[in-house]
Every structure is written in C-alpha cells, then in structure tokens.
Design a protein around this nucleic acid. Structure first.
Length: 467
DNA sequence: GCATGATCATGC
DNA sequence: GCATGATCATGC
C-alpha cells in the first residue's frame, strides 16, 4: 500500500491536508490529486444514493473518500496517532447573505451512570475533544456529498481557548446528575457546552440515572449552536485578518457570572439618571431603550452586540425589566424580528428563537419605590427557561411558521392564548414592512415572552415572596 | 385594566 | 436605511 497524502501522526499535516478543501468540494480536490495513494477507491454505492435524512452523509464521505479511513468504531479519536478528532459542521446562508452555522455540534453521547463517576480533568469529554479538526461546508440536501462546497477547515483547541467556561458547563451538567436531577437537565443551564437530547423518539431514549429512580431523556454533549457558530466566526476572522476582532470580558479563570456581578456592583441602587451622570452619558427620556442602553454600556456592549467574545459565544440574552413598587412589571419581553422568508425553511432547533430561549438570560432589574420616583438599578440576576416549558415555545413557533407558509399574517398567537409566549408587531411604525415568501410585504413582527411568565418565573422570586 | 397594536432613539 | 430593545397609546 502506498502512503497516505498526510502524516497520520501530525496534527499540522492533517489540518494542512484538510485545508486543501477550502473553497472547493471533495470530488474537485480528489480529481486534482495526481496520486490518489492510499485512499479508498472502492467507494460504496451508499454514498451516491441521496438520503435526505442521513445527517452524517458529508462526514462519512469526507472520512472515507478524502481521508481514506474506514468508518469503524468511534470510541477512539478519528486520528488516534495525532489525538485529533474530525468534525463536520453544516453552514447556511441567511437572506441577508450572512453565513452561519446551521446547527449545534454534537459531540459524544454519555450515560448518567458513567458521567456520574467522572471528574473533568480525566473525563471522556476532555480527552476526546482536546484537538478538533472542524470542516465547515455549505449544507444542501439535494447535492451529493462529494459536490458540497467547503468553506473553512481548521483546528479548534477548545481547552486552550475556553477551558474555564467548558469546565464550569461540564460541572453544571454533572452536578445535576449527582443531585438526582438528570431529568431536569436543560440546554439553557450552560453557556457553551450543552447536554442535548438525542433520538427522534424521546420515550425510547429514556435512561436510568444513578441518584434517582426517575427516568431521564438520554443526552449527548454538544457545542451549543451559538458556540459553534462563534468558533466558525473566530476561525474565519483569524484566517481573513490574522487576529481576533472581539474583546474578551474575562481574563483567565474568571467566571462569567461573578465578573458580570462585579461589573454592575458600583451602580447598584443608583438611579438611571445618576448612573448616566457617573458614566458621563446622556439620559434621554424619549429613548425607549434607555435602561437597556445603560446595561449594555456597563458591560461594554457598545456596538451592535458583536464585539464581546463571551456574549457571542454564549448567545446570552441581556434584558432589562422595570419593576414597580408592588414588585410587578408591565411589559412583555421582545426578541429579534421574524424573517418571514427565513422561518419557512427552518427547523425549530435551528431557529433564532430556539437559540434565544435556550441561552441564559441576564436580567438587569430597575426598580422604583414609588410612582413618582426614578427607577434605580436594583439587582442583576441570571436565569434560564426550564426545559419543561420548551414545548410551548415550540408550539408557538411551529404555529407561526405554518401560518407564514399559508400566507396568513393576521392570526398569529396572541398574548391571551397561552401563559408563555405570543407574536406582536415590532417596527418603526405600521408602515414598516418585511418581505414574505408570497412576494408580498407585511408588518414586522417578533416573538414575545408574556409579561405574566416573566412575573411568575423571575420577578416573584425576588419581589413577592409571600404571594 | 389589560391586551394589542404602534412607535421611538440609537448606532451602525 | 435598518435592526434592536424596548416603551407608549388606545380601545374594548
């Protein structure tokens, strides 16, 4: 057998070989290789039968045809001699031509019994994912795997970049198992690393857990969609600009929550106008997002939220709420506008709204003690939506998608229809329109979380203990 | 009084 | 010009 076209024991060599694929397809590059030494020539027919449901199609083809590997058991690294793991990640292009990672990156499955006994430093997760060769390709269900265009191939050493947060996330997941709460694990518990459910049928994937008799959904560790998308953006920036364009909030070993709390500390109990005076910023009563702007500026989000590493990597949602003297709030919580053309092609778990509700929230609570006083910065609280409520958000999203597909823009779910989420306009004015798949224009709208839901799940915890 | 629809400043 | 993160206004 002739030698491979790369050195199996060298990360550098394997990555270089993978990078020949950039801006090309696998078949294009293979045709141009003068020698095809050591590669698998006898490509199994299954690679050529297009199967829309075969998510691993591209990955298998890449491994077998381009790297010349058998698709054998997955317990060891894909390139064991180099301790390198190969992962493929599909991209999608949004209607504004922005390229984004399509979905979360699933890493290893785990059982609660096994992970219960692990410690982070020697965990399977840590060992297996130290060096990941990421191959980002443009997803297209109707195209043969060998013809899909590769955008970027590069090495991601997640523990060199983000060890502290990944350790904290891993520990959060494992702590729930220790506490006999594996059935309460939620993707929103963590920032970068997530524990996602796997298997189309939740019932068949139910598992035992070591510290409780309650069965829990089987889980796999994953890079949450915001994190894998962020990795793609960072690698792309480094390739195009040779450096990072984002600023990190955290220095080594700092914990996100603690850091955020300490950033806000000097402003606690100060009124909004006082904070603006302290910071030498203007306080404009006409500005409807004046409290949000204060919070944004304090954490350093000056531009359009794209300048801070940890915020992009986690998709964390910074939200301000005004709390009245009786501990209630008035308004619901809005999210990004719905792109009507986008939503009809999306799956729930790949949507912006899913990403938002499975990310953590930082609630910056401004309170006033009487109706004629200014609001002051009272508390900063981290929170996430419990997984038991995901279903209703999904129902609202699916209902909206279905109505957009039908061209019905008049009967989206209203606040009175459930206790959790609704659709409402959000534009400059009623003439502010958005293009639709039907080729018409409709008023801009977005998903909202009901005031009542925020009241019960967030505010009542801090302001209405006795109710 | 509350649900729903309308609208505002800001920062790119 | 447009997206964002909200708050305001009104009508039942």
């Amino acid at each position: 057998m002739k030698g491979l076209l790369y050195d199996e024991a060298s990360i550098h060599s394997i990555v270089k070989y993978a990078q020949l694929l950039e801006n090309k397809s696998i078949d294009e590059v293979n045709q141009n290789q003068r020698s095809f030494a050591g590669m698998n020539q006898d490509i199994p027919k299954t690679f050529f039968y297009e199967n829309k449901n075969n998510k691993g199609k591209f990955g298998n083809y890449l491994e077998y045809v381009y790297f010349g590997k058998k698709n054998d058991n997955k317990s060891q690294a894909d390139f064991p001699l180099a301790n390198l793991e190969l992962k493929t990640s599909p991209l999608k292009t949004l209607s504004n031509y922005e390229v984004r990672v399509k979905e979360r990156l699933v890493l290893n499955h785990f059982t609660f019994t096994d992970i219960d006994k692990e410690i982070f430093e020697s965990s399977r997760f840590k060992k297996k994912n130290e060096n990941i060769l990421l191959v980002f390709y443009h997803h297209n269900t109707n195209t043969h795997a060998g013809d899909l265009k590769i955008e970027l191939a590069d090495l991601w050493q997640c523990f060199k970049e983000d060890e502290a947060q990944l350790r904290a996330d891993w520990q959060t997941i494992v702590n729930k198992v220790h506490a006999g709460k594996a059935h309460e694990i939620s993707e929103g518990d963590t920032l970068y690393l997530g524990a996602c459910t796997k298997g189309a049928d939740a019932k068949s994937s139910m598992q035992v857990q070591p510290h409780s008799s309650i069965m829990a959904k089987g889980r796999a560790l994953c890079f949450k969609s915001c994190y894998i998308n962020h990795i793609f953006q960072v690698l792309l920036q480094r390739k195009l600009h040779g450096r990072n364009l984002e600023t990190r909030v955290l220095s080594e070993n700092e914990i996100f929550e603690e850091k955020i709390n300490s950033i806000f500390k000097p402003y606690l109990k100060k009124s909004a106008p006082e904070i603006c005076e302290m910071r030498n910023e203007k306080y404009n009563l006409q500005n409807k997002s004046r409290y949000a702007d204060i919070a944004k500026h304090i954490v350093g989000l000056r531009k359009s939220e794209d300048n801070l590493y940890e915020f992009n990597a986690s998709g964390i949602q910074l939200k301000t709420v005004r709390v009245e003297p009786d501990g209630t709030s008035v308004e619901s919580l809005s999210f990004k506008n719905i792109d009507f053309c986008e939503i009809v092609d999306e799956e729930w778990e790949e949507s912006d709204f899913y990403s938002a509700i499975t990310s953590k929230f930082i609630f910056v609570l401004f309170r006033r003690d009487s109706k004629d006083m200014d609001y002051y910065l009272d508390r900063v609280e981290f929170w996430q939506i419990p997984e038991k409520d995901y279903q209703i958000f999904k129902d609202v999203w699916e209902d909206t998608k279905e109505k957009v597909l039908r061209g019905d823009y008049e009967h989206f779910i209203k606040m009175s229809e459930n206790h959790v989420s609704h659709i409402r306009p959000k534009g400059k004015n009623s003439e502010d329109l958005m293009y639709t798949p039907q080729g018409t224009f409709e008023k801009k709208k977005c998903f909202w979380i009901n005031q009542e839901y925020i009241q019960k799940n967030v505010l009542d915890k801090f302001y209405r203990y006795y109710n």
